[in-house]
Design a protein around this nucleic acid. Structure first.
Lengths: 301, 301
DNA sequence: TTCTGTCATTGAAAAATTCAATCCATGCAG
DNA sequence: CTGCATGGATTGAATTTTTCAATGACAGAA
């Protein structure tokens, strides 16, 4: 004898049919039509070489073999149901960890965390790191990274493109506006983000793309993180380039003001990445949906 | 949560992959190609929302979830394997019961029983009954019945058509041959089978169909079973109509002789019947094969 | 570096499952 | 007894699932 499993779908059909003493009811429970159940059970009977039901007097009578089989089957299937359920539970009950840059974490992600946590029914945790390599190495459920969506061993979905505008705190912006056309107040430094690999849009790119003709002041301040740059701009330390998506709330709240309507767009953008298959996961789908969903600040005020 | 089973094929693939620490080996064991395993396991990972293997450093590392799942799974599947195996065993280890008419049982089936028993590895049992209704009611694996293959609630396969010839024991046949043309020895009765429903070919039909022009003797003897008729013919009690398939051995062995080469054929024949699906069963296939196979007497002499 | 073994990916092919429609038997109400 | 209603069987045609063949990517070994 072969010591081999019968067709599993057939077992499943049998389980329902036996429990309900009806092919039709079983079919309903399995979300199929009755002939499908009929087919599966016949197949199982052929495999086992024995009848499982007799259809006498209009009622389904399980045979002795059917009783034996069901005993084993319901126990086994229940066991599998229990463990796989538990796995699903723990998989979705463990806190979500999202890794990203400090700037994104503080200014963009943080406002979305409550909704995310609510949608998943689980605490959300943010790990911020400055370097891409660190982000990718980090053991997180997913990460938000800047780039073009091509990371080996990661599935990626675009959150938003890089769209950059020039901002300053209101007082400083006012000074710029009052300054003679084409001139910046000399004591208002430009805050730059260090970017040796030239991955982001910098001031040079911005000026070139927007042709706004602003003459930049000579003073420059360099920081290594966008969050820091924003923080400095907020506190009036100078003017900075900011990602539109990120500063939306700050602009709406008036803590920052755009120096012009010009925006520069690059090919790259911010992506949500996870291990392969992550976005086919319930958790992955949920996270993606929340993060690409409506802006959290845009509710009724 | 849904308390629902993961895709069962995926579980099966996982079981093998886990046990062998290799998709390729699992694929071989399942008689499929490696991408099929890859696909199923990915599907399972999506269903559970958790990774099952990490593919670091070229080796397949099961995750904690995988270990848990495998524990349950192997136990459950083994249980199912055991019971379904046992069911298959008992189904195929119980003796085969074939119900049929006494004549068929004695003169046709009996010589095939050894081969049948051998092919099934199980004793074969013959139940003989005279009436069709009894045969159909009898709780046998299958039955050999005369008719046209149309029994409700039974699958049927034709074994041989009804082909009838006139026979007698050698001495009696000799007497017939020596008698003047067209005349039968008056003291040699014709053995008839009672057949109120006129289902079989009787002497009248035979004479009409074969146009052999034999004048039948007046003496008639009626029996209610073909086996009995044959037995009487064998013992020299008269001449009888015999089914070709059935008396092949007796003719070959010389215990019976044909009175003429004429044969009459009817639409009906002898069928092997079993419950629906029986012929898709291993047991059913085997029986059919043996019974329709080469004649048992036709080996080298 | 090149070779080898393993898993991933992908579009196409094959197989399995399911469906819709219909038949047939049985039970029940009139 | 007849006519309806219910539930399973049947069948050929979709439909979906699963698998395949080919190929890519990656890691370790030679």
């Amino acid at each position: 004898m072969t010591e081999t499993l019968p067709p599993l779908k057939a077992l499943r059909a049998f389980e329902e049919a036996f429990a309900r003493r009806s092919y039709t009811a079983a079919a309903k429970a399995l979300n199929v039509q009755q002939p499908a159940v009929s087919y599966q059970i016949k197949r199982l009977e052929e495999d086992l070489g024995t009848a499982l039901f007799t259809k006498e007097r209009g009622r389904l009578e399980p045979t002795a073999a059917a009783n034996e089989l069901f005993d084993t089957l319901s126990q086994s299937f229940d066991a599998i149901r229990r463990t796989s359920d538990r796995l699903r539970q723990t998989a979705s009950a463990s806190p979500v960890t999202i890794a990203t840059y400090p700037g994104i974490g503080a200014y963009w992600l943080s406002s979305r965390l409550p909704e995310l946590s609510g949608a998943l029914g689980v605490p959300a945790r943010v790990v911020t790191l400055v370097k891409d390599a660190d982000l990718l190495r980090e053991d997180a459920d997913c990460r938000i990274i800047f780039g073009k969506g091509d990371w080996p061993g990661q599935d990626a979905r675009l959150l938003f493109r890089e769209q950059v505008c020039a901002v300053a705190a209101p007082a400083q912006a006012e000074r710029v506006r009052r300054a003679p056309q084409g001139e910046f107040p000399a004591d208002l430094p430009v805050i730059e983000q260090e970017d040796p690999e030239h991955r982001w849009i910098g001031w040079d790119d911005w000026l070139r793309q927007t042709e706004s003709g602003l003459a930049l002041p000579a003073g420059r301040t360099a920081v290594n993180d966008h969050g820091l740059a924003l923080h400095m701009a907020l506190s009036g330390a100078g003017i900075a380039l900011a990602w539109l998506g990120v500063v939306e709330d700050l602009l709406a709240g008036g803590s920052l003001v755009r120096l012009s309507e010009d925006t520069a767009v690059s090919e790259a953008g911010y992506w949500l990445t996870g291990r392969p298959g992550f976005f086919e996961t319930r958790r992955g789908r949920t996270i993606l949906k929340v993060l690409t969903g409506p802006q959290p600040g845009s509710g009724r005020t």
